[in-house]
Simulated assay, not measured.
Amino acid sequence: MSLLTNVMEHALDDGYADAARRRGRYGTSRMPGTLRGKLALGGGLLLAALVLTVGAVQVRASAPVAAKERQELIARVVTAQANADQVQQEIDRDRARQKQLQQQAKSNGTAAEDTARLQLLQLVSGAGAAYGPGIRVVMDDAVSAGTDGGSNPRTAAGFSDTGRVRDRDVQLVVNALWQSGAEGIAINGQRLTALSAIRAAGDAILVDNHPLALPYQLDAVGGAGLADGFRQNVDGGVYLDQLKADYAIRFSISSEDRVDLPAAARSGLQYATPSGRGGATP
């Protein structure tokens, strides 16, 4: 017990205590003794307190802004999800209505006629999938354009190069297919309708705002004379031959026993209403 008591009462070793006494520092305070030192210490403490205070104020001020931005993002996500759900519900209702109309057409006395008319409307409007004999046209950039390997035109430079297939080229070929008797056309699996647009955006060729990747494959359903008519069309086979001769643009034309076309993406309906002068405006 005496040893424990001695350790507790004399925590500092006697040797250290004697050395401190010889230096005159034993039992003295390390606080500055001069006025200048005390002012310096007080200024340092004040500066540290000021920095901590400013930091705390900034944290408190930015917290509501961050929380507000987070809530806005959450609200936008929820709204977008609700809109997507609503569109999906509309698609489901339209499909159910279409199926109901098809069943009604089959059950009445003119089922065959109505079904044929419905299929024709779906074919020409692109609302339904279609298949049949037809033609396949594949267009690709010249080898010198440096876009081989199925690269995406969005990431390939040099669209101004004459060896690149342009949106105008695709437009002319599509129009030539319609003129030659095509009843339905799809480009790289995207069905064309009366409202479809083929245009360029930077280095990309877009079909209804969807970028195309090389090569450009145009599938068309039509009668037996579609392939011959397209090859002889000025904006069809003749134009492609000219592109190959002038710019080394590659292409191929082949007749197909069966071509499958997907249904077009759902788009809003366009209505016509009578004008004040008795005409009709879109």
Rank of each mutant, 00 (worst) to 15 (best):
V138R: 04
I185K: 02
A82G: 07
Q190V: 14
R199P: 04
R21C: 11
S2F: 05
L172W: 01
V54A: 14
D167V: 01
G184K: 05
I205W: 06
S255Q: 15
G225V: 07
N6L: 13
L195E: 15
D18R: 04
L218Q: 05
G279V: 11
Y16G: 09
R60A: 13
D161W: 00
A19S: 15
L218N: 06
A48C: 14
L41W: 11
V173S: 03
G149F: 00
S180P: 05
L39G: 12
A204L: 14
R23D: 13
G279H: 12
L101C: 02
R250M: 05
S255F: 06
G126C: 12
A197N: 15
E9P: 01
L240I: 03
R199N: 13
V173E: 00
L47A: 10
L214M: 13
P262D: 09
A201R: 10
S180I: 04
E90F: 09
N188H: 12
E72A: 14
G134K: 00
L73I: 09
L243Q: 02
G276N: 02
R166G: 03
L226E: 03
D13E: 15
A116E: 11
D257C: 04
G43M: 14
D85E: 14
V165K: 02
A201Q: 13
A186T: 05
A61V: 12
A112Q: 11
A182I: 01
R25W: 13
T53P: 07
N188Q: 11
